[in-house]
Design a protein around this nucleic acid. Structure first.
Lengths: 142, 142
DNA sequence: TACAATCCCTCTAGTAACTATAGAGTCAAG
DNA sequence: CTTGACTCTATAGTTACTAGAGGGATTGTA
């Protein structure tokens, strides 16, 4: 069974361009070609493509996926390294989460400052965004 | 009081290149120049730069900051529109958070599958990443 | 068989918000 | 007068794609 790129993309749930992109990025081996120069993907290709897409759905960077694919290709898979890659991804996600929580707090605080411009003659949100000294004063130590 | 770009960047807590980038992106008006063609920033410039940096620290896209700056420049500030921009940003942040929570769950589930390769002869994490049919089966409806 | 619709090809440029580099000019201190 | 820190412009790189131009291949229909 072999598929042209459109069918392969559909089966992996991505766009045709993405498949070509993975090939160019070295994540997907170059497939055979038809006489007319169309790419012909095997089941194995398709499996690998799905593997990549699954990793991407977990937001892993392509670099990590490349590493995973290498580990996957080894006869004896090294669980320790694989776990490390997953753990690192979990760490990244949690870091992002912490950042977003902080962000939301700041935004909500800012949002709560709006009392209409009638009182102070200017929007308190704009003032909040202007006044804050957190982005360096004269003595900024960046 | 006026500052050259290095001083301005330090006071705003960003890099020199970033300041030039904002100018090129139309967020910061072109400053005066010295005879030797160095940029000379006024207090007003600096304030605006800090405003931009503060917005960025809240992860607002430059496009939104451009809008905020316009609203800010209007004599009568339109609280409704300003609020709308902030609310939209809060929505974006919350959307991202929901995504990350889902992501972490998936990753932790995957991570929990590792029982060492001795049992099944292959790493269960790799299997987990390979087997999943969520990225299109034969009957994929993408 | 002619033609149109749909697929596929390569190559290039665009996205967001910077960051980094090259190669040159400016300026103050020693 | 030279050294070093600073600045200038212009260009390319980052991530993971996406979109487009300009062409060829294949397929179905009249």
């Amino acid at each position: 069974m072999s598929y042209r790129i459109g069918e392969a993309a559909k089966r992996a749930g991505c766009k045709v361009e993405t498949v070509r992109y993975y090939e160019q990025a070295g994540l997907l081996p170059e497939p055979a070609r038809t006489e007319g120069n169309f790419r012909l993907y095997s089941e194995a290709h398709l499996e690998q493509l799905r593997f990549i897409r699954h990793c991407r759905s977990l937001d892993m960077p392509l670099e990590d996926i490349r590493n995973l694919l290498e580990l996957k290709a080894q006869p004896i898979e090294n669980c320790a390294e694989i776990n490390e890659l997953i753990d690192e991804q979990i760490r990244r996600v949690e870091e992002q989460m912490a950042l977003l929580i902080q962000l939301r707090r700041s935004l909500q605080e800012l949002r709560g400052q709006c009392i209409g411009p009638e009182v102070t003659g200017t929007c308190e949100i704009i003032r909040g965004l202007s006044d804050c000294q957190c982005h360096g004063g004269a003595d900024s130590t960046v």
